[in-house]
Design a protein around this nucleic acid. Sequence first.
RNA 1: GCCCGCGUGGUGGAAUGGUAGACACAGGGGACUUAAAAUCCCUAGGCAGGAAUGCCGUGCCGGUUCGAAUCCGGCCGCGGGUACCA
Length: 850
Amino acid sequence: MTRYAPSEIEPKWQKAWDADDVFLATRDPNKPKYYVLEMFPYPSGRLHVGHVRNYTMGDVIARYKASCGFSVLHPMGWDAFGMPAENAAMAGGGHPAKWTYDNIATMRAGMKTWGLSIDWSREFATCDPEYYGQQQSLFIDMLEKGLVYRKNAMVNWDPVDMTVLANEQVIDGCGWRSGAPVERRELTQWFFKISDYSDDLLAAIEGLDNWPDKVKTMQKNWIGKSRGLQFSFSVVDGPEGHDRVEVYTTRPDTLMGASFVGISADHPLARKLAAENPDIAAFCEECRKGGTTEEAIEKAEKLGLDTGLRVRHPFDNEWELPVYIANFILMDYGTGAVFGCPAHDQRDFDFASKYGLPITFTFEPEEGELNTGEAFAPAKTERVRWTKAYAWDEVSTGEEAVEAAIEFCESKGVGHGVTKFRLRDWGLSRQRYWGCPIPIVHCETCGVVPESKENLPVKLPQDVTLDVPGNPLDRHPTWRECSCPKCGAKATRETDTMDTFVDSSWYYARFTSPHAATPTDRAEADYWMNVDQYVGGIEHAILHLLYSRFFARAMNETGHLADSAREPFNALFTQGMVTHAIFQTKGADGRTEFHYPEAVDLRDGKGFLKADGREVQIVPSAKMSKSKNNVVDPVDIVAQYGADSARWFVLSDSPPERDVEWTAAGAEATHKHLSRVWRLAAEIDEAPETGAGDDDLLRITHKAMFEVSQGIESFGFNASIAKLYGFTNAIAKSKAGRDTRRFALKTLAQLMSPITPHLAEEMWAMLGGEGLIARASWPKPDEKYLVEDTVTLPIQINGKRRDEITVPKDMAKEEVEKLVLENEAVQRALDGGQPKKLIVVPGRIVNVVV
RNA sequence: GCCCGCGUGGUGGAAUGGUAGACACAGGGGACUUAAAAUCCCUAGGCAGGAAUGCCGUGCCGGUUCGAAUCCGGCCGCGGGUACCA
């Protein structure tokens, strides 16, 4: 070979690794274990550069740890259930199962060209009956432990298609297919009792030392522990059974500023009133319009209706407050009823302004703080009304004030202090086909009964129709029919399937024993768990990670995981997303059409469709998404420049945690660099046997070992690559003798091997390395080459760099000061005077203040 | 709306309280070549200057500090999540 030819090198070494079973994860009692996992992909059928980035990062860690002497588990699988398969079927793409497995085949083939160090013998898809059957078994175990229950909850309802919609299927408040305004409708659904673990999940965040702070903060806020007062208002002449309204507030210190009580449209009192009053019923219907997302509810115009009912203030029987039904109050949170204090809450202020309600101050506002059109932030703490009415004048703010108010109210017999969480139970029922069937049987005599484990898996039927909206399992002619596992009578199956988040909440545990006849094989799980390094997108910071933490706890309590695995991910790294512009046009029917990048010509910052020349609208920098068609396929890049170039390139420029906008330019430059590296190794025998500067090259080589390792250990892959560039340039320039040069190049190959494994093997072979580099030990620097005896200190004058001095590393501070004062630039600045201040930070910097 | 991030040359970025712009891309200049490709060398934040050097400069405004891209407060812009996208 006379040039770098990745298309020849890469398949060759991939075969060599396979033949030697290099990546097979084995329980080796003589080695520490290391489990590295990247979030498994959804088999959309298209690989994109985001996948390359994600899996290369994990692969660098896996290969690095393996060469550091760990027994590594690095598996891969497919998060295979979900809506896109059904959408594809509806669009004529064939059966969801065929579509999914075809996609997996395509993606697996693409991924295998990347040279990832994956133990493919552990591969599974969540839509394999073997996997979801164990999930059903787990569900039944959880049901028996009381971790699963049924209750009513709201869903998005399309009144034209008569079907439940996912949030993604609600576009501007309307159904994506029918275009009809969406409503909220109540359904009986299955729930996981994740709220039982609120405190545990919150408290354990403190122990997640190797998780990013931002993820921990997001999870804390999501769980949302709050301290407040729960109490009730008595209703003046309320309807029977509704003589009191229970409310929860986190701001009991503002109770004396209450001006109305708001209840949810789904509150029992609202329902009672709606049953008797058509106007109220109509308003409640109005409140149920729109989707179920928090965003839709919070951003919707705040609407209220005076019910005509009045309640009495708990501290003043004469003081009556109106009861409003309001569309922004959720039945799911707190008690479904609140009191409004417009003086100290912006939302209540807006509401009160709109409906002409009084604004009553609890605190004494400062002059000028009134009439600003905003609620008054309680910076001042004199409790005017509290003081005047009850001589309660404790001065405090924030949490203290809340706690004091709770104590005061409790002492007066008004309610009691309560801790609540924002976290709601996890609704897992989905009215869809392509998911794991919920293993439940409905029997007329026995009621809701779990399927018996011998009958698992409850398999999805193959013969379904997806040409009309709605759940195909519901309309299947025979699938529902079964016998009751308890009494044997004729019964029907539950037709809801599970949320696909369930599938991804325990797959990490299944990888430890992917073919066990129980959810886990405890010996295997106990050896491999926990995941030592988890790598994935920041978009999963809350839901997936929180659900997985909950499932690990549930699996511990059902005996499938050890106590030590209740917190399943020791370290988490959230990589940034690879973003790409979206190219969109308006179709004839007014819908937005999304176009693939390869279908668009870019000229002068504008885009035109190759097919018909129409101009496209360019939305810059959006998350790559199947539905937006803005994914970049890495197949072309691998075909043109090789996998090693693609791997190097996706890690090289941006820090791993940051989003990166993909551009085609640059991949070629990487290829040029790798060619240069290859040539350096290929030409080793042309180097003279003895040369000059061997010591310098040795020093540089050992320094590179140190710096590149440090980069990998700290997820600074871009920094490691910058050091590798520097190291390569130094080798190229060096005139050192052949042996030193060979040592430097072999070290370079090793340091590059986690990133460009094929090229590294090729270099290793050319340089006479023994065996596979994939099995070689990571190079350790010799300390004696790392120490420097002098240090260069920048000299600042008034904080601006003006000069520098090089001094022995351990020079005394006084000596340095003396030298600095003798410095020409300092002399000039001092102009014969004395410095006001002289700051010497040993080893770092000198600052002279004049 | 709410929660969490991010913002530095023409471009990707480095520097996490201590020399702003490492390393690279694109650019400019040069060597080699009949020529091109490939390769190698030099150059490069902006403004002024022949140069030495000076001033300005990390989204905007203000603060803390001997010293701020970095810490604090307030804005602006962009991105992620918002419980049925995965």
